[in-house]
Simulated assay, not measured.
Amino acid sequence: MAQSQNEERKQWYKAMRKFKWGIIAGIQCAFLAKVIKYYEDTHTADIQPLANSSDGEVSAQYLDIPVSENCYMIDEIIKQLKPELTKIDKKCSSNIVEKLPKKRLMRDGVPVVAVVLDRDNDNWKGGRAVNNYVPNSSRLHNANDAIIIGVLGGDAENG
C-alpha cells in the first residue's frame, strides 16, 4: 500500500526530530552534582551527577574534577584569619569567631554546578595555568572535562 506524500513527510519529520534529539542528548554542557570527596590540597573533587538517565540508571562518578577558585577562596581566607580573630575576641571580649560560618563552603556532600568544556582538557596544566595546549584526544563536550564552578545552597551562618 502506497503512503501519501503527507504521511511520508510526517515520518521524515519524526525521524529527523529523533535524530536531532539523539545528537543533542549526547552533548553535555553543564550538570548538577554532589561532592563525594573534596581534596583541599589539589582543589579537585570527586562528584556524583544528580540526574539519572531516562531509564533511571545512576550516572557514574567523575573523579579529580578541578574546582573553581570562587568555590573555596572564602574558606581559605577564614582559615587564615581565624587565629587572629580569636586573639581579638579574647582581647576585646567580642564574638567575631562565633559569627563565622560553622562549615566550609566547599566540602563533601554539597551540591555543585559543573560545566563541561568544549574540548579535552587533559593537557591543561590546571589551576591558574594559561598554557596553550593540544587536546589529548578528540573528545568534545564530555563530562570527563568538567570543572566545578559553583556551590549551591548554604548560607553565611552554616556554609
Results as ranks from 00 to 15, higher is better:
1 M>V: 10
2 A>I: 08
4 S>Y: 09
5 Q>Y: 06
11 Q>R: 14
13 Y>R: 14
14 K>L: 09
14 K>M: 05
15 A>M: 11
16 M>T: 06
16 M>S: 13
16 M>A: 14
18 K>R: 14
22 G>V: 02
22 G>R: 09
23 I>Y: 11
24 I>Y: 10
24 I>H: 06
25 A>F: 05
26 G>T: 02
26 G>C: 10
26 G>K: 11
26 G>P: 07
27 I>L: 13
27 I>F: 09
28 Q>M: 07
33 A>T: 06
35 V>T: 04
37 K>T: 13
37 K>L: 02
39 Y>C: 00
40 E>H: 10
42 T>M: 03
45 A>R: 00
45 A>E: 01
46 D>R: 05
46 D>F: 00
47 I>W: 01
49 P>K: 03
54 S>W: 12
54 S>C: 09
56 G>C: 14
57 E>P: 03
60 A>E: 15
62 Y>M: 11
62 Y>E: 11
63 L>P: 00
64 D>H: 08
64 D>S: 15
65 I>S: 04
66 P>H: 01
72 Y>F: 15
74 I>Y: 08
74 I>S: 09
75 D>E: 05
76 E>Q: 14
76 E>A: 07
76 E>S: 13
78 I>Y: 10
79 K>D: 07
81 L>H: 05
81 L>E: 08
82 K>R: 15
82 K>Y: 08
82 K>Q: 15
84 E>L: 12
84 E>Q: 10
86 T>S: 12
88 I>G: 07
89 D>A: 10
89 D>M: 08
90 K>Y: 08
94 S>Y: 05
96 I>Q: 08
97 V>L: 09
99 K>I: 01
99 K>F: 07
104 R>I: 00
105 L>G: 01
105 L>S: 04
105 L>W: 03
106 M>G: 07
106 M>V: 03
107 R>L: 03
108 D>M: 02
108 D>T: 01
111 P>L: 06
111 P>G: 00
113 V>F: 11
115 V>G: 05
115 V>A: 00
119 R>V: 09
119 R>E: 14
122 D>V: 10
123 N>C: 09
123 N>A: 07
124 W>C: 06
124 W>R: 08
125 K>C: 06
127 G>D: 05
127 G>Y: 10
128 R>S: 11
132 N>W: 11
134 V>Y: 04
138 S>Y: 12
139 R>T: 06
141 H>T: 00
142 N>H: 15
143 A>I: 00
145 D>F: 01
145 D>K: 02
146 A>S: 15
146 A>K: 01
147 I>L: 15
152 L>G: 04
153 G>R: 00
153 G>Y: 07
153 G>H: 06
159 G>F: 03
